[in-house]
């Protein structure tokens, strides 16, 4: 064997070793990811005693019966109302996602397509606003909501999403790369109004970016705990994460199986949605990537 061949051989062997290491680490992390979900499912159909005996076993004596009983426990004790939480979270997340992506696209379009005096200043302001964490506004927002009667109103959680600086920032990145002013010009020559151009030409062009940002906005809104916890005190207005936090309460302290079922119920819809849309999330984030 010549020297070169030996070298090539050792590079190849190193490659195989590296690949094996990569797969082992990835599989360990995959198991780590799936572990909590397996635990959730496996304990949702057990009795409290079975959970106490072994959280890690997958076997139960009467799974169907236990599932029914656990469902009865979580839906009958009053405070944790999964269906009400679902409905409220669905309303809040859907409406705020629509407002978020539509008005963010509009604002991004205003910054990208038009030359106006305060454009640069406005753009800089949006970048700065991204840094204001939502929680810092909470004390003032609560006082303000209290004054104008927005406490316990779902709209207090929906309307603020009209101004979503992070989404505007991403949308602008996307528009700068993909919007050609020629299309807009030709639509103008055809006599279309500016607003109509935006709705019928620009919005369809932005579909991929809108899809990605809509998923982020939806998940963010669905999972939000801090502001709903402060703004919503009425049991019939609470969103799902606030309902979940009730599972921590004393009345469920010994109902282990029921708690796992309650948690599973809050997770399932997100998993189902994710199964269908994960492609957009994982590939689509590239759209929002800062181009350097």
């Amino acid at each position: 064997m010549s020297n070169n061949e030996v070298k090539l051989h050792s590079i190849k062997r190193n490659d195989t070793i590296l690949k094996v290491v990569i797969y082992i680490v990835c599989i360990i992390f995959s198991i780590m990811t799936l572990f909590p979900f397996v635990i959730l499912i496996a304990n949702s159909y057990k009795t409290s005693i079975e959970v106490q005996e072994s959280t890690l076993s997958l076997i139960s004596k009467h799974p169907i019966q236990n599932l029914k009983f656990n469902w009865h426990v979580i839906s009958s004790k009053g405070t944790f109302k999964p269906m009400v939480g679902f409905r409220n979270s669905f309303i809040v997340a859907t409406l705020s996602t629509i407002l978020n992506v539509y008005f963010s696209s509009l604002t991004a379009y205003a910054i990208t397509a038009y030359e106006w005096k305060l454009r640069e200043a406005f753009n800089a302001m949006i970048m700065a606003v991204m840094m204001i964490p939502g929680t810092v506004t909470m004390i003032g927002f609560f006082q303000f909501a209290y004054k104008i009667g927005l406490v316990n109103k779902l709209s207090a959680l929906i309307l603020p999403s009209i101004a979503a600086p992070m989404t505007v920032f991403f949308m602008r990145q996307y528009l700068q790369a993909s919007l050609s002013m020629e299309i807009v010009q030709s639509a103008r020559i055809d006599g279309a109004g500016e607003f109509r151009i935006f709705n019928q030409i620009v919005v369809p062009l932005m579909k991929p970016a809108i899809a990605t940002q809509a998923i982020f906005a939806y998940v963010g809104s669905w999972n939000n705990l801090f502001s709903p916890m402060i703004l919503l005190t009425d049991g019939n207005k609470k969103t799902l994460p606030v309902m979940v936090s009730l599972l921590n309460g004393d009345i469920y302290k010994t109902e282990y199986g029921a708690i796992y079922l309650g948690l599973l119920i809050t997770v399932l819809p997100l998993i189902v949605v994710y199964a269908f849309l994960s492609r957009y999330i994982v590939e689509g984030v590239a759209l929002g990537g800062v181009k350097s």
Binding site: F29, S30, T33, L34, P36, I39, L40, V219, W222, N223, L225, L240, P241, V242, V244, S245, L247, N248, I259, L263, T266, V267, L270, I271, Y274, S278, I281, V282
Partner: peptide, 16 residues
């Protein structure tokens, strides 16, 4: 798979 934990409600994760 690696992205999946991110979509789950943090509240759920914490109690789990």
């Amino acid at each position: 798979l690696f992205y999946m934990p991110n979509i789950i409600t943090a509240a759920t994760m914490a109690i789990l």
